[in-house]
Write a protein that binds this DNA or RNA. Structure first.
Length: 427
RNA sequence: GGAGAGGUGGCCGAGCGGUUGAAGGCACCCGCCUCGAAAGCGGGCAGGGGCGAAAGUCCCUCGGGGGUUCGAAUCCCCCCCUCUCCGCCA
């Protein structure tokens, strides 16, 4: 949600900025509706004030022994008029809000303007693509050799896109999750365990509802949504609160499974763990003052990059262009690791500053000073990191000719000192 | 799921048909006092919205939504949540 007062006063520049991410955006109908809406409010309130004023005279007149009959007649007439005005006001407000809520955030000035994601700017590269002196395998083949995944049975249990991790595969991902949580904790992010189900209000806060509802699994009987990322649940954590300024910044990290319907994104080339309906992710989430949110974005990005580095993986960081930004984001960095088996980079982290977009939707505020009015906080989120996809990178980049996979040193402590994943003996 | 109790401002807590957007306390802010501080004293202090350059003014909000009434925090209905007891399940 944007600050509609600000939009009203900066209509032309807002429209220009929004069009840089969606060329079909036209603010004119919304601004027209806003004008009519405010006129309707003024009229309904005028009638209500009149009603209140006359109503207050009743006890005095009764006391004075005067007849209140003419006054009551007058009142019922005004009341009827007022009801009609109120209905009109609500209609306009509903339509207005429906349109206003669907607007994406205004991109930050430092974000490159383009509708073409091929214009995303690589701002950092680390390491190099691994070179193999032997025919390398993709993660599916490696998984087959090591017996660490069971996609067939995942289908049997649930459906395609619900992977099963077995033995060392399960242990390795477990190790990753623990490693990431520990590092995030050490970096000052408070660990937090979250519900995987969220209600409508929380879904709305993060911007998933209503526009992207169809990407979430929905439990109709209870009207709850299964989270596509911990960001959604974390966004709801401080909903409807006024935080003391001294508490900011608030930094959280959480591990959750993530569930995405991925409707319409079916890709035969994205097999195995590349794109699934259920995956695992460790998330970072910060709430800050408006003044410090861009520093915080760099901090989150730095943390995510550092984690990939520690795992010894080759990655690049890109600054997304306006057209590639998610609904609530004002600025986003993606961190992508190289997947030899896919012959391309894949996102393992997306770090965004949503500024006040989510805070406004969820009414998350803070009081800058003891005497000032509450203001909206800025919210930021970043994957740190998506472990299911990291698994692919680790397996593919650390494979050896004999079919075993070297375990990154950072994870060995979480694997009982184990240094490699080896194929079952005799097979 | 059944029975009962309850949801009021940043927090605690009164109010139970009009003068209450809400007593009192705590917290917080400003001032006095003090070398400074504490205590004490005086004052201030909910959120959102419309109009307005501003001062200001009006409207809404006492869990949420409807209703009764000229008028609702107060009465009625539905829903949500919390607590206690029972049932059920881990």
């Amino acid at each position: 949600m944007l600050d509609m007062k600000w939009v009203r006063e900066h209509a032309a520049e807002t429209e220009e900025a929004l069009r840089s991410r969606d060329s079909s955006i036209n603010l004119a109908p919304l601004l027209d509706l806003d004008r009519k809406r405010r006129e309707a409010i003024t009229e309904a309130e005028r009638l209500k004030a009149e009603q209140n004023r006359l109503g207050k005279e009743i006890p005095a007149r009764k006391k004075a022994g005067e007849s209140v009959e003419p006054l009551l007649a007058e009142l019922s007439r005004i009341k009827e008029e007022q009801q009609a005005a109120l209905t009109h006001q609500r209609e306009l407000e509903d339509t207005f809000e429906e349109i206003a809520r669907a607007l994406p955030n205004i991109p930050h000035e430092s974000v490159p303007r383009s509708l073409d994601k091929r214009d995303n700017v690589v701002v950092r590269e680390h390491g190099a693509k691994p070179e193999f002196g032997f025919p390398f395998k993709n993660h599916l083949e490696i998984g087959e050799t090591l017996g660490i995944f069971d996609f067939e049975r995942g289908v049997k249990i649930a459906a395609s896109g619900f992977p099963v991790y077995v033995g060392d595969g399960c242990r390795l991902e477990r190790a990753l999750i623990n490693f990431l949580l520990d590092r995030n904790h050490a970096a000052g992010y408070k660990m937090i365990g979250l519900p995987y189900l969220v209600n409508r209000e929380t879904g709305y806060t993060s911007g998933q509802i209503p526009k992207f509802s169809e990407q979430m699994y929905h439990l109709a009987a209870d009207d709850l949504f299964i989270i596509p990322t911990a960001e959604i649940a974390l966004g709801g954590y401080h909903r409807e609160e006024i935080l003391p300024a001294s508490d900011l910044p608030l930094r959280y990290t959480a591990y959750t499974a993530c569930f995405r319907r991925e409707a319409g994104t079916y890709g035969a080339e994205e097999r195995g763990l590349v794109r699934t309906h259920q995956f695992n992710k460790v998330e970072i989430f910060s709430l800050t003052t408006p003044e410090t949110s861009y520093e915080e974005l760099e901090r989150i990005r730095g943390q995510a990059e550092h984690l990939v580095e520690e795992l010894g993986l080759h990655f690049r960081t890109t600054l997304l262009v306006t057209g590639d930004l998610g609904q609530g984001a004002a600025k986003t960095y993606d961190i992508e690791v190289w997947l030899p088996g896919q012959d391309r980079y894949y996102e393992v982290s997306s770090c965004s500053n949503c500024e006040a977009y989510q805070a406004r939707r969820g009414n998350i505020r803070y009081r800058p000073t003891a005497t000032s009015k509450p203001e909206f906080v800025h919210t930021l989120n970043g994957s740190a990191l998506a472990t299911s996809r990291l698994m692919i990178a680790i397996l593919e980049c650390n494979q050896r000719e004999d079919g075993s996979v070297r375990i990154p040193e950072a994870l060995r402590g979480y694997m009982g000192g184990q240094e490699a994943l080896a194929p079952p003996s005799g097979g």
